[in-house]
Amino acid sequence: MTAGDGGGAGGKFEIVAREDYSDLTYMLEVRHPMMARAARPGQFVIVMSHEHGERIPLTLADFDAQKGTITLVIQAVGKTTREMQRHCQVGTRLLSLVGPMGIPSAVSKAKRVVCVGGGLGVAPVFPQARAFKQAGAYVIGVLGFRDKKLVFWEDKFRKVCDDLILCTDDGSAGMKGMVTKGIEVAMKGYRDVDEVVAIGPPVMMRACAELTRPHRIKTMVSVNPIMVDGTGMCGGCRVKVGEQIRFACVDGPDFDGHLVDFEDLMGRLRRYAADENKAMQRWTESCRMGGPGEPGARDWKALAATPPESAIDELVLPDPFDDAQGG
């Protein structure tokens, strides 16, 4: 069995499908049969696209054990994510893909659940909505986009949601307003909401948590601090939850939204802002010049040409999750 090969040349993780939902958002489907089988809602991966690249965390937006693939939905916000937008085409490979990481979301016995996704949180909330549906809950989806052009996965959500509220900032699709408005509508329509799951930018998650706090509705959020290893080794992903400091990669990423210190989270996300800008600027410039010598561009042809790892397809494993629950 092979989860990938040690350190060698080129990448091991083949991109088998790609779809662009807008100028900003794109979907990559990557072959990794073992991970497709092990993945659970709420877990994430760490991706490194090439040797000079950064390790970035991305939520498992979907996984298909039959097909042996996992799905990532990515917003191009900075150097790495834009570079991937440019270079990650079908047939190319990612250098490194490790996961599933983090503790799977606890799919509770809640009867009526609102699943909220905004911006880069839309795709990540999908597996949870589906899991709640499968557990027998009545699921109300609330999705927020800036405008109609950015909307994606509406159909996919409709299949797993009993009710879906689409919100856009300018009202060009669904109702006009932020997801918080959508939640208010949902709470008016259904007086017995017993859980809210909110994933998106920290400001959005904070707003959702503040909205539900007076109603004492359990609200789970998935925090997204800057990460390095994703194995609990560096402490870079630490967040304040209640009185405690927790590491999002091994103690989360899901926490009780009413306890998370969002100020702290947002402050810490700005940590490398200056460097991020520098990397972005440098990359944009090198793109304009289009020189082949630039580090980001160098390996992609070679990566695409390396033969696929075949052993990975053969192993069939049952669920690691059952064991995980035991300990």
Partner: peptide, 30 residues
């Protein structure tokens, strides 16, 4: 590391044991 590879040891990076597969699975199924 190269010396170990010469002994026939295989290195599988990008593998988070416990989450990608568990220790009981290594023994019972793999």
């Amino acid at each position: 590391i190269a010396n170990l590879e010469k002994l026939g040891v295989r290195f599988e990076c990008d593998t988070l044991v416990g989450r990608l597969f568990t220790i009981p699975q290594m023994i019972d199924e793999m």
